[in-house]
Design a protein around this nucleic acid. Sequence first.
DNA 1: TTGACATCGGACACTAGTGTCTGCCTTAGT
DNA 2: ACTAAGGCAGACACTAGTGTCCGATGTCAA
Lengths: 204, 204
Amino acid sequence: MAKKTTTAEAPAPKRRRADADRSVAAILDAALEALASDPDSSMSEIARQAGVVRATIYVHFPTREALLDAVMEYAVGQVTDAMRGAEPQRGEPVEALERVLRATWRQLAQFHGLLALNTARLSANELHRRHLPMLDQLEPLIKRGQKQAVFRSDLPVSWLLAVTRSIVHTASHEIRGGRIAESEAEATMISTILGAISGKGGRA
Amino acid sequence: MAKKTTTAEAPAPKRRRADADRSVAAILDAALEALASDPDSSMSEIARQAGVVRATIYVHFPTREALLDAVMEYAVGQVTDAMRGAEPQRGEPVEALERVLRATWRQLAQFHGLLALNTARLSANELHRRHLPMLDQLEPLIKRGQKQAVFRSDLPVSWLLAVTRSIVHTASHEIRGGRIAESEAEATMISTILGAISGKGGRA
DNA sequence: TTGACATCGGACACTAGTGTCTGCCTTAGT
DNA sequence: ACTAAGGCAGACACTAGTGTCCGATGTCAA
């Protein structure tokens, strides 16, 4: 079960009753879980899992699309917060990157099914746009590393970011496929990313 | 428009008439193209694009699933052939890898939309299983490189393969998103993969 | 306590797709 | 030229999902 904390969700311009808040949270949690295991989960399934009747979902989210958007925004928000919390701007680039990746990784664990969902649902561009908040946390860090010549400068930052993201996803993918142990994944992922973006496998 | 060459498709145990062969080829081509741009393309759309009527598809492919499977098998076959044609076993590992990646990349260009399709449709395991023919072409090469200590040996081969695949996909993804020029993508991709799997530098 | 808010439970209309069937026409292969 | 295979056109039944609505019941908050 995902956390109940609905941080930074819906600016709530209208005052909602307490039970309504509970419903929304339950729906988001259920959607998160249901969609992670099957990106095509129906509204009925989500409702059932949330312990709510289907019509109730429509009270809070006008369409299925709207619900999916909210779920994604929620997930991205959680991960972005985790990244920010790891202070990308502090310390040596390599060390900082390790720290941020570790934080990201732990937060990400819950959301991995969403990837397939969103690659299917959104255009490549749209998907990228929504990932921006996370990439933005990383970009200054990578640039800093390039300036200090610990990360390779012969390739554009955007590419290094894309590669980083991709390797993180690969790690989770390999875990799900049982081809790598969950206990080793984190170290493997970090070591690989460092090798990839610091053209010389830099290890502090 | 995709190539009309339906190499190595369907062992054809029963003799089909020439026009039937043409239909199947047209359907596969159309499916390839349609599904690449929208993984949810309907049978009607595919039929229209193939210049046949919807029912005709069902003459050759019993269900939608069957068609999708055939399309994927076709695409994987094409790429695998290209890889094999680049002779992974010949020459220095780094050079050989470059050569194989180049061949792969060129063949892959046509099939990129299929990725989203299949990640949505298949379980992670199933997807991986079907990618095996391609990974099998690469595995001995990577192992050879590890033995010669030009590729890093501190990570399992399966992981290095996964990372390689993932970076290739990322390159095509970035092209589609217009964040990297098509002309540079190949070199960028190869250089990054080499950096990632050959942890050259202080691994003391 | 009261009234507005929210949920329940179920019915309904609608849509979009899949897979089947039929009779007729066209075309390939011998 | 003949015949069987293949394709066409359109209708059909079916499924699974979305989104709406409504009356009845419960529950929060002032």
